[in-house]
Write a protein that binds this DNA or RNA. Sequence first.
DNA 1: CGATGTATGTACGCTACCGCACAGATTGCT
DNA 2: AGCAATCTGTGCGGTAGCGTACATACATCG
Lengths: 239, 239
Amino acid sequence: MTHQPSRAGNGLLRALPDEAWLRIQPHLQRVDMPLGQTLYQPGGKLNHVYFPVDAIVSLLYVMQNGDSAEIAVVGHEGVVGIALFMGGESTPSSAVVQSGGYGYRLPSRVIKEEFNASVAVMHLLLRYTQALITQMAQTAVCNRHHTLDQQLCRWLLLSLDRLQGSDLVMTQELIANMLGVRREGVTNAAMNLQRAGLIAYARGHIHVVDRQGLEQRTCECYAVVKQEYDRLLHPDKLA
Amino acid sequence: MTHQPSRAGNGLLRALPDEAWLRIQPHLQRVDMPLGQTLYQPGGKLNHVYFPVDAIVSLLYVMQNGDSAEIAVVGHEGVVGIALFMGGESTPSSAVVQSGGYGYRLPSRVIKEEFNASVAVMHLLLRYTQALITQMAQTAVCNRHHTLDQQLCRWLLLSLDRLQGSDLVMTQELIANMLGVRREGVTNAAMNLQRAGLIAYARGHIHVVDRQGLEQRTCECYAVVKQEYDRLLHPDKLA
DNA sequence: CGATGTATGTACGCTACCGCACAGATTGCT
DNA sequence: AGCAATCTGTGCGGTAGCGTACATACATCG
């Protein structure tokens, strides 16, 4: 006997109209999303969309020479696999689990049908997509203009928002791959943050001590993205 | 007596189903798009979408300190103002005419109605949006990993694809603003390309001598974006 | 408890790009 | 023709991050 999937853990599932949720629910499948798992490969066919609950997924592009760069990050607020309802079926980027956990997956056919069947579902997914677009745009800006220290802060904050608690399990090597920089660069930036009393870390475990401090030290990119997610996905929260 | 808008000059208008085109046509308005014109401001309400014909529009983010970075570029293949049908109504970025020309604009109401009324129109616009997303993602990657020389090549090629002929009217100062680098950096990169016999330029006028040479010198980002536009918007062209 | 792997720190020279200051050079205006 | 504005070239010191090589520390497991 299996548990019924719950919509509580993912913001998009929660925001679905009730009747859409009832249609979708039987097709949802709870899946483990272990660290390092590749959800899809560049150009590959997508068989499912994933709604993370306590996992975090990085969308990243891997260059021919093996270097990589993160394009955006998806957690319990979103869904992995927008190319399915956008109509492209695939993308040049990959999706890799950056912080292990679980989520729900839904067969491509079901999400496409639901997208076309319900205007409310469509608009919800499109608003989410626009928020994701903002994140990508800001990543481009950040890559151009901001220091590694600032980018690390932004990255930690984005991750923190997608986890409960204030600890991340994450080696510097992995962070370096996401940010597309040297591991030593991350070591250095992390030491700066540690000395400033903002974080404490040891062997793949980062504890955020002073979240506000991180917010002060990061660039405007974080706030821009955060605000846009709130505006597009939680309009009720605003004044 | 005014001319009827023609759909020939813009790829999206051309790809519309005939009946959608007939509905839209009466609301289309031909507009001049002079160099430097701001089509929309961050957070501002969008009153129209724009379909460029021989103009090029840059989507860019301007930071608090005034520095800027281009996020994507839109020409006769696309439309400016996707936030309207994506549901967000505004974006944190601006849209500025980077190469003067003309295009057609359509009131927000009309594009929204058409998006919701016709599945074919919706899917067309969403496929375009996915192509645009790819361009943004690749911009992020390029900003992270590639040299200014390569980025200039990419930028020239993207512009070239959106113009007829092989001349651009464009000061180095302006290019620098788009790429988010120093003007002197562009001077330097441009001299490199000039010495290599790929371009010839003088006071705001760039003539591309050897397009193939540019393609060889640029990074993979250009090809990735180009391919994705072709795949998503001209599926007939492929084998 | 010692051995092996994994994660992190350090050092050094190098390069691309920045910030700034200024020097031609071309174009347009009167 | 002469002047002003604009655009492009150059030089110089500064720095953030790269590539490489290696050193240390912690953790797991036999």
